[in-house]
Design a protein around this nucleic acid. Structure first.
Lengths: 339, 339
DNA sequence: AATTAAAATCGTAGCGCTACGATTTTAACG
DNA sequence: CGTTAAAATCGTAGCGCTACGATTTTAATT
């Protein structure tokens, strides 16, 4: 039978074996567990590999062993230093253990998430990393029919499907609220990206509001129509201050929103923190460079990646006790001049 | 023979075929080219798939067809809106054509790039996307022994390995220089991230310097030790102004550096653009929000992703004429108040 | 009803590798 | 030097799918 092949005929393990005068099994063994092959053969095999420029065929290996060294990771967007730093760290740690990341963008859309889960499961992944707890019904049933280890990251406080690595967004809101209350502020506002889109911003809001209200303060909510957008943030801030000129503090769902608010305050000559205390979330690069520097919350971006990798690897090695499957990494208030 | 299997036995195509009362070949055909299967069988097959929750095994398919729907993409870092936006766009376009991205971080290190190329080639990818023209000798020989279509992106002006989608960094430097010259500035400086790490910053510098010097101006160069870092940028700026108080304009290798410079100027009360004209590169989010808003260069982040996908798909469909393999997307000067 | 071409379906032979038991080689010891 | 266990190597049988020619079914036409 003639099959159409790619013109650049790939070198197979058999050809390496032939050149090294051993059986293909030995080559395979050498590649998988080099110390179980005598050093004499090991050298011969390695030199054959080098001479032929042999590259193993991952697909064939994966099929034969019915497991892959692929870990699927779904994030809402990689265009965001939160997730991209987590991804980078995760990638580094998993790659050094021989795993390959398959990254998918859900775009904050759960039907897209479902589609991506389907696509990733078709790779027979060794593990799966999801962002947050929100998955639609079909996704859940796909995952239920599958014993792949799963980490849900960037959140904490719900049971979760399997492992959980993150922090409480409610606590973030609380931390900011407590800080502002400590400074004697009572009339507050929360300017936020859209809750529909970013459910965790909603949790931060509720943490903030609950804490402020419990202390006898008030919170005005202003929600953007989508992701943080400088112009819309400016408009919203202006309207907020027009309706509630008594506002003494504004917490924002993230630093980009806070920057937008800061610029609008600057435009109107409302001193920060003199008239308005301002805080963000995320501790993005630029927050040290604004005038005044922005008080914000530092989420454990890289730690999430690192611990997700650790838990996943431990779980794959079947040495992760049930009790250590959930990890709250906590957050830190970065106190600067704006609040 | 007993093999150890994963506990969650995956449903195979054969089982779907059995339930639908057709041969496995027909199921395969239905999955690959549904319109070549009669609608009667199609329905039966689809319902069997749904009932069993069948997910195709990508590895088996890839092995049998000896091609995969994987596209490898190597970027220096995904922690950077330049590349992450390109990646996001690229992913969207390629996924809708049925391809899966395999993303690797080279960390601006060519031996890491080599390792990643090796790892990605072992997937038998349908295509490969690299950042820039700089690859080490071994990488080049790996790629030479392989007929995978390759796009080199985010640069333009060198022959390249196969396809090229990007823009000229030299032209970026020139554009900024021309703008500043037009405003009568002559004594200039360039503050930059490390050239070793980011070779393209070096091209922007040379474009800037050549243009300024050709017009009779001068350019002082200050290079950071690594990536943009607010504190070091501040120190460098202060030293620059101490050594060359006559400096009238500072161009920066990117917006983060420009922000650092701006903050240092603010600290010393050096008015921008009154005393110093300032320009960056990248048109990052925050550049509209600084005071004054930053003049910068807008690189075609998303367009690079889009056109890379287009060229790759056309090439895979063997319908890309040689003449269209190289694409200069150009850049735009975003003129704001800082210069 | 017979003929024929087109459409739909099927059977077979791998894709390149790994798992695992079988076999061979090596080393250790009395 | 013979015996035995351990170490190293090998052969075989798939992994789940696709390609492609062979076969069957369907439809169109006489």
């Amino acid at each position: 039978m003639t099959r159409n092949r790619r013109s650049s005929q790939r070198v197979t393990m058999g050809e390496v074996a032939q050149l090294a005068n051993v059986s293909p099994s030995t080559v395979s063994l050498y590649l998988r567990r080099p110390d179980e092959v005598s050093s004499r053969r090991a050298e011969k095999i390695q030199s054959a590999i080098d001479r032929l420029g042999y590259l193993p065929n991952t697909m064939a290996g994966g099929l034969a062993s019915s497991r892959s060294h692929v870990i699927g990771v779904l994030v809402p967007t990689i265009t965001n230093s939160f997730f991209s730093e987590t991804l980078e760290t995760l990638e580094r740690h998993l790659r050094s253990a021989g795993y390959q990341l398959l990254i998918g963008n859900t775009e904050f859309d759960d039907s897209r998430e479902e589609e991506l889960i389907r696509s990733i499961l078709s790779w027979n992944p060794a593990g799966l990393v999801l962002t947050g707890f929100l998955h639609n019904r079909k996704s859940l049933s796909l995952l239920a029919n599958n014993d792949t280890p799963i980490v849900e990251m960037w959140d904490y406080g719900q049971p979760g499907l399997d492992m959980v690595v993150g922090f409480s967004h409610h606590a973030c809101g609380r931390l900011v609220a407590e800080h502002m209350l400590r400074q004697g502020r009572r009339r507050m506002a929360f300017v936020s990206t859209n809750f529909q889109r970013d459910v965790r911003a909603g949790d931060r809001y509720r943490g903030f509001r609950d804490t402020v209200e419990a202390a006898g303060g008030t919170v005005e909510l202003r929600e953007l129509s989508g992701r943080s957008h400088a112009e819309e943030t400016g408009r919203l801030t202006q309207a907020l201050m027009q309706d509630h000129p008594e506002t003494e503090a504004i917490a924002c769902s993230n630093d980009m929103v806070a920057l937008g608010v800061m610029m609008e305050c600057q435009r109107h000559n409302w001193p920060i923190p003199g008239r308005i205390a301002l805080a963000g979330f995320g501790n993005l690069d630029f927050t040290t460079s604004t005038v005044p520097p922005l008080t914000t919350i530092e989420p454990p971006r890289r730690e999430i990646g690192q611990h997700t990798a650790r838990l996943l690897l431990a779980c794959l090695a079947s040495e992760l006790p049930e009790a250590e499957k959930r990890l709250d990494l906590g957050v830190r208030l970065v106190e600067r001049d704006s609040a």
